[in-house]
Write a protein that binds this DNA or RNA. Structure first.
Lengths: 151, 151
DNA sequence: CCCGCAAACGCAACAATGTTGCATTTGCGG
DNA sequence: CCGCAAATGCAACATTGTTGCGTTTGCGGG
């Protein structure tokens, strides 16, 4: 029923999913497409909105969770928690790009901003500890929320 | 009905609450007591457990949230989010002690370890941004979870 | 010492997020 | 083209956090 999909990146996501060794389904391709198109990590609600915005049918909330879990499990996506306590997901390629700088999280509006400064080198760990990721997280109030006259 | 409470720190918490300019209630004193006695930030469920463990009546869940909010609002407590996406609260004095070093979070068992190294200085922020807290968060696998032979 | 008011509390209900069970559909290898 | 296992959709549930409202209580004033 649907005509040939105009999205050019659909084959890229398909290829990544196929290479990861899991089944290539329409849902996974669309979710990974959205993750790649996003400029910052998305929570599940934002993803539902972007998936429903197309002329395609929306993906079930539970299925979305499971798709994201499968993408995380095979290394195509990363899972993190924002200051509001909500899980946010990002394509693993985008995350690697984000590892090069520092994030500023506004404790007021919840927004995330990228600072230019480089993160410091990781510290020495005790014996037996294996280093995973290093996150230099700066919290405070962003310029918009710092305005003194807010009703 | 209750005899003189044996807890020696109850007056300390009362004094802090009074100095903060909010009403001194039994609930606030008990919650702040628990926060001061805790060695690390507590989630609401852990606090409910510790409050119910006494011979005193347990505090309502909603009231506990409001008490914590009021303590945060007047600066006596701090609010953070752990890797599971749950809010954790700590007495502001305890947090200051924790700000001097780096935390290592094991992504496997969820444990938090304190490293000796000092956190690096905060970076320069864009105009209008106000610095709140800086958290240097290192994630990975702790020594216990790094053991190769786990069933 | 008693009164009254506003703050704080307890209860109920609700909202958002995340999980589990199970029947049905679908990717994809044979 | 068939069939099986994986993936999906639906319903129901669990946990965490919030809102509304009537009642209780801290505490200042009379």
């Amino acid at each position: 029923m649907a005509r040939a999909l105009p999205s050019p990146s659909i084959s890229v996501s398909s290829e990544l999913i196929r290479a990861a060794g899991i089944k290539v389904t329409q849902g996974r391709v669309r979710v990974l497409d959205v993750l790649h198109a996003a400029s910052q990590p998305l929570c599940h609600a934002e993803m539902e909105g972007r998936l429903g915005g197309d002329q395609l049918a929306a993906i079930d909330r539970v299925t979305l969770y499971r798709i994201l879990d499968s993408l995380v499990a095979c290394g195509l996506a990363l899972k993190a928690v924002d200051t509001r306590g909500v899980f946010r997901f990002s394509a693993s390629g985008a995350q690697r790009q984000h590892a090069k700088h520092i994030h500023f999280r506004c404790t007021d509006c919840g927004g995330v901003f990228c600072l230019k400064a480089e993160p410091p080198p990781p510290p020495k760990l005790p014996r037996g500890f294996r280093l995973g990721e290093v996150e230099f997280d700066v919290r405070g109030t962003c310029a918009g929320c710092s305005l003194p006259d807010r009703s």
